[in-house]
Nucleic acid binder design. Sequence first.
DNA 1: ATGACGGATCTAATCCGA
Length: 265
Amino acid sequence: MGLKIATWNINSVRLRAELVCQFLADYQPDVLCLQETKCANDHFPYSIFRDAGYGHIEVHGQKAYHGVATLSRLPLKKPQRKQFCGKEDARHVAVDVIDGKRAVRVHNFYVPAGGDVPDPQENEKFAHKLQFLDELEAFGPEAARIDAVLVGDLNIAPLATDVWSHKQLLKIVSHTPVETEALARVQAAGPWVDVVRAIILPEEKVYSWWSYRSRDWSASDRGRRLDHVWATSRLAEMATAVEVLRPARGWEKPSDHVPIIATFD
DNA sequence: ATGACGGATCTAATCCGA
């Protein structure tokens, strides 16, 4: 059967471990890539996920900030934790997912948010984000030599239809031309196919994140598509379904991001 | 258009997210 891969910025894995289990039970992905786990490796709630049937786990965490983890009900091999920008800030973990006879490399990323001011001279965090994207561009061709999926919170909404107002967000970090152009270079370098947009027409608005700071996130609907599923072309051609789980933003004590699930048959 | 929020941390006020 198909391979189901999900990605979700969970905004604290310890706080929402039960919510993750509910998601796993209801949607049955084979692999779930989490970002912003916000906990050190020795505090990761391994046993909760093992008990839920996801016994193959690779984490790359640190205390309080960032952190990624990949959970799987299929065996995992060749874990890799790559450092970017010379920092040990836990923004990447990769694994081989062993699905019968085939192996699929899954890269799980949490790209820096970039702060408020979209100017690398004025804002160190924005400079870090751009440098991270440059290093990701350089890493892509190596990662994409084999069948691979690249998922995660890339913190950039590339298309006009990936934000609630293209015009009003052009100077807002996550949708500035310098970022969307850098992301396009990363994508071209792999090359990677944007699996979500291969299934959902680019004309259609799609968001995966809504700020906590609105009274009514659904009514105002000021979202952005910051979370992504990319794949190498051979795999992307096998993608049969994509679900961006908008209702998850309305779950009790939600993350500000929703899961995205892609199925490869 | 920042923000009326929310999470983590040396539990109180501060940093961070995007």
